[in-house]
Simulated assay, not measured.
Amino acid sequence: MSENSASFEARLKASAAAVETCLAGILTDRTQADEIARPAPLLSAMRHGVLNGGKRLRPFLVMESAAFFGGDRQAALRIGAALECVHSYSLVHDDLPAMDDDDLRRGQPTVHIAYGEANAILAGDSLLTLAFDIIAAPETNLTDRQKTELVLTLARASGIGGMAGGQALDLAAETSAPDEAAIVTLQAMKTGALIRFACEAGAIIAGSSADERRLMRSYGETIGLAFQLADDLLDLTADAKTMGKATGKDAARGKGTLVSLRGQDWAETRLATLVEEAAALLEPFGARADILNETARFIANRSH
């Protein structure tokens, strides 16, 4: 591992630890203003669904994108935690028998296995709601305008035109194989939309210009494509122990991916091109963009 890679992974781990601490502090049995009670089984299921390790890549992108433009680190940490709640809710629901029917997530039993289907549904619902609570809360030191923009942008990335819509397309793909254009759309919604939000959120937190927001959107879209392509490659080549979840399920279900359509060699070449495209977007910033460039390389080359 190169010195740059080791430094990057240490930075990623430190960020993940900060996010974990932030989320653990939010998900206590202490009620907030206007809350009546926090039922223990539901709280436990939520904690199981979100406090389960992981790279916390999406919050990392929020924090690094905000730092790139000089945004407040603590506000970025809280927005990153909110985004992780949305991401975790999606995993809790995706793992349900009615969706992907998975028993394992990050090497641990999925929420519906550990706590039952009803609690898993409620835990997902509550994590999604909590995300917007975190953004709007007075502890998040941003202006009302910034909070409104973050709420709207995250809602659009999460809902029918983003992640949830992408999951609907993914379910439909099990019975009717999509063509390449449809796969690109599905993946941009299911996976790419939250990664795009993570990068744009940093610019919002920093009060950046419209041009800077557009730049970070483009960067986020590019690395979002890389993330899903790398994920599809891992589904083909990695084992369940390495991944901490079942692998090979897309192929088993006959679900089309760009890797299955174009092949492994094409996917690896395309990944390298996407890393170059991300670097080209940030080239005007020189060394200031080193961490974001390293992030793109990490996404493309990760092994789990």
Rank of each mutant, 00 (worst) to 15 (best):
D290N: 15
H93M: 04
R56P: 01
N4T: 13
L42W: 04
A280L: 06
A272G: 09
L236A: 14
G80V: 03
A177T: 13
H112I: 09
E9W: 00
T269R: 14
I113D: 08
E174I: 03
L169K: 03
L233W: 06
T21E: 15
S90E: 09
L77P: 07
G49L: 05
D133W: 13
I36K: 12
L57S: 05
E149W: 00
A240W: 08
F285L: 08
F68D: 07
L12W: 01
H304A: 15
E283W: 00
A280E: 11
Q228C: 01
I135N: 05
D100W: 07
H48Y: 04
E268N: 12
N141Q: 15
S90F: 06
I135D: 08
L169D: 06
H93W: 07
L104R: 14
T143I: 12
L122G: 12
R105C: 09
P284I: 12
L51G: 07
L271G: 12
Q167S: 04
S5A: 15
A168R: 08
T21V: 06
R156V: 02
D103C: 05
R56Y: 00
E117G: 01
S7K: 13
F60E: 08
G254I: 13
E180P: 02
L186K: 14
F8Q: 05
G256L: 02
G124A: 11
D29A: 13
R30Y: 00
L150H: 05
R297G: 13
A296L: 10
A246T: 13
I204C: 09
E180I: 01
W266D: 11
A296P: 14
L194V: 11
R217F: 01
A98P: 01
A287D: 14
L236Y: 02
G286S: 10
